[in-house]
Design a protein around this nucleic acid. Structure first.
Length: 717
DNA sequence: GCAAGGTC
């Protein structure tokens, strides 16, 4: 049926792209799950339509979870439909079987996973001969011109075979690790524990952060500030000596303060430099999720869901699951149109836009080299009426970021003054905004300042006198690394390079690679929560006992421990990249993965490595909020182990009684109380009148400084 | 009961 007259079948990754093709090709006729004209049939996937078979499809012995039948290493892999999208898979299959169709164009997203989506569907549903298979490939916004040009420039699908092999290797490697090590860990630890390349590495970040904080001992240090005056005005300077800005001993700070009190020094140097700060790059999804978490406390999941609605239903945002922060050079015209349409609707936000910045010369915005599967997330229309306040918030973030990109740089003057008195030196930094440029878009917020009072410096010159008018010694404490907010975790997932030592591997993460992808990061976080590895406490994510236990167990095993470091993912990514480029061999990669999995499973079977697999900290339920010691189970309560060491009243007296209002607290609630300071809402309490009630338990500090358990009864109960 | 990757 090959020939000039047969219709061409186009398969896209998702319906919205199918519609873009239909629009460009003037297709009007609608079928069920596809669109058709006299020359084209356009149909779509809904992401993956097929997935790897379950273990027991390869061997029935793998149905039940048993240590004896591990490792699971099938010789060949097969695909099965994903049940939720079975119907669309049927549509695509029937179209592929039609006899009046000629070439088939794979027009899934331009990336490794898009390739896998297209190829696995064809593999399952029946692919035409290789000479009829073609690939449509662009990362530009799918305007009609881009679609038509792309269709004029199709490649043989075989040009992308290596990419497909790399994608399939990724898929199989993740499956092998997940199926084998989740089962091995679960059987060994006698409770459901999932293990995977991404989730385990991310969990390890959270566990390590928690440990760092648990073991952190705050140390005091002292700062010396001095207020100077002269005829021109006054200014504050912070003591420094070379790289040192802190005193380790209070006496030293006091001595320096005494040495300068009542003295007059001089301005040793005064430098003023004009600097420019370009507008921030456009949003990738992770950037948007971070900003929404910072500003509004939205979870990554929630931001994704809202952005999806704005894209899919409200049609005012571009495709959200993107990791690009730029647009393609072919989008200049589209942007000009958007600026024209949006400016009158949002005049205050677009007032400072310079139309000349919507030009291909603006490489910060229009940069084909930095496009990935998609372009950056931008507004496509004004937000329709009837959207909720949360949708408006997300839209507003994207709108402002877009408007900012077409503003001039922010220009400011950075001032640094060094004042010297009696051999002691003091630094004053100031920053004065000269032209706000893009910052005008955000001017409703507090202005950025680096130091207090620093914006209003007198016009000091070198050699000016400086009389010491006041000295201040402040005692401060060193701070542990911060707890993970979702914003911070997303940042570390996007750029895990700083957790990797080897330079060659750091480079992998300097590309667009991270832990997980834009489309899955929110899901990974939710998985960690669902498995109770991690708890949400206000806006923070904290590794809890189950999560710590899993990481400890893995770290006790010589091979398996690789999964607890982001290095392993970087290693895999590097090898997958080599496969895609043609220098790597997928079979060699997968046999390495198979032996890794076999070794790791073997370690779980024998417990090699010496770390006890079940509850490494057998009796420790948590950390004592008073002294940081271990809280262990006693007869009537869970108390600080320190008390046992010195039962005569000298040791720490912290305790959580087992029974509260007629109910014995579950151990998990005690663990939660110690970790988070509060439990979920628990039911089964009984009041003195015999009424049952539900309540949250909370640890509240008493007058003697020792926390005790109080009830927090939800309203209306 | 298990992964990670898409999209709804």
């Amino acid at each position: 049926m090959k020939g000039g007259h047969a219709k061409t079948l186009i398969l896209t990754e998702k319906p919205s792209v199918g519609r873009d093709f239909a629009k460009a090709l003037g297709i009007r006729v609608k079928g069920e799950g596809y669109l058709e004209s006299d020359r084209y049939v356009v149909t779509w996937a809904l992401g993956h339509l097929v997935e790897l078979q379950e273990p027991d499809a390869y061997d029935p012995r793998w149905k039940t979870w048993r240590m004896e039948t591990l490792p699971i290493l099938p010789d060949r892999f097969a695909y099965r439909p994903i049940s939720k999208t079975r119907k669309q898979l049927g549509v695509v299959s029937r179209l592929l079987a039609r006899k009046d169709l000629g070439d088939v164009v794979i027009a899934t997203d331009a990336g490794r996973e898009g390739e896998v989506i297209g190829r696995t569907i064809l593999l399952y549903a029946g692919s035409p001969a290789a000479d009829r298979l073609r690939r449509f490939w662009t990362s530009q916004a799918l305007t009609p011109a881009v679609v038509r040009a792309g269709l004029e420039n199709l490649s043989p699908a075989a040009d992308y075979d290596r990419l497909w092999r790399a994608g399939q290797a990724r898929q199989i490697a993740d499956w092998l690790v997940g199926m084998n090590l989740s089962r091995a860990a679960t059987l060994r630890m006698k409770d459901l524990f999932s293990v995977g390349r991404v989730q385990t590495a991310v969990l390890a970040l959270l566990v390590d952060r928690r440990r760092e904080r648990d073991h952190f001992k705050p140390e005091p240090y002292w700062l010396l500030k001095v207020r100077f005056t002269n005829g021109k005005g006054q200014w504050w300077g912070n003591w420094f000596r070379e790289a040192e800005t802190r005193f380790q001993k209070e006496a030293a700070a006091r001595a320096a303060a005494a040495a300068v009190t009542g003295k007059t020094g001089r301005v040793q140097s005064a430098s003023r430099k004009k600097k420019r700060q370009p507008p921030p790059l456009l949003f990738s999804l992770t950037d948007l999720q971070q900003e929404a978490n910072r500003r509004h406390g939205f979870s990554a999941q929630k931001t994704l869901a809202i952005a999806q609605t704005l894209y899919e239903k409200r049609k005012c945002l571009s495709y959200p699951r993107t990791d690009a922060r730029v647009l393609g050079a072919q989008s200049v015209g589209m942007v000009k149109g958007l600026l024209r349409d949006l400016s009158p609707v949002y005049p205050e936000i677009f007032a400072g836009v310079k139309a000349s910045l919507a030009s291909p010369d603006n490489r910060r915005v229009f940069n084909d080299a930095r496009l990935t599967d998609h372009h950056a997330l931008i507004p496509l229309a004004k937000i329709p009426k009837g959207c909720g306040p949360e949708e408006e918030k997300i839209y507003d973030l994207a709108l402002r970021r877009f408007a900012a990109a077409f503003h001039p740089d922010c220009e400011y003057e950075a001032t640094e003054i060094v004042t010297v008195v009696e051999d002691e030196t003091f630094r004053t930094r100031g920053r004065v905004v000269l032209k706000p440029g893009w910052q005008a878009v955000y001017e409703t917020e507090a202005p950025a300042k680096e130091e207090d009072d620093a914006a209003f410096l007198p016009p000091l010159e070198q050699g000016d006198p400086a009389a010491v008018a006041e000295t201040r010694v402040d005692r401060k404490m060193t701070q542990p690394p911060p707890e993970y907010s979702e914003a911070l975790l997303l940042k570390d997932m996007t750029d895990p390079g700083r957790y990797v030592n080897e330079d060659a591997l750091k480079k992998v993460y300097r590309g667009d690679v991270g832990l997980g992808t834009q489309a899955t990061r929110a899901q990974i976080i939710e998985t960690l929560l669902k498995r109770k590895y991690v708890a949400r406490r206000r806006r923070r994510l904290i590794a809890i006992e189950r999560g710590c236990r899993l990481i400890d167990t893995l770290r006790g095993l010589a091979s398996a421990r690789a999964l607890t470091s982001p290095e392993e993912t970087a290693q895999w990514e590097r090898q997958l990249e080599e496969i895609a480029l043609g220098s790597g061999d997928p079979d060699a990669f997968l046999s390495k993965i198979r032996s890794f999995v076999a070794n790791a499973v073997g370690e779980f079977k024998t417990g090699a490595g010496g770390v006890p697999a079940e509850r490494p900290q057998t009796d420790r339920l948590g950390r004592c909020p008073v002294c940081g010691g271990d809280v262990i189970e006693g007869k009537k309560g869970y108390g600080c182990a320190d008390w046992r060491r010195s039962p005569l009243g000298k040791g720490c007296r912290f305790v959580i009684w087992k029974v509260h209002a007629g109910m014995a607290l579950p151990e998990a609630a005690v663990v939660r109380l110690l970790e988070a300071g509060e439990t979920d809402i628990l039911s089964g309490f009984k009041s003195k009148t015999g009424k049952t009630f539900s309540a949250r338990l909370r640890l509240v500090q008493q007058a003697n400084g020792i926390p005790t358990v109080v009830f927090d009864i939800p309203r209306g109960k």
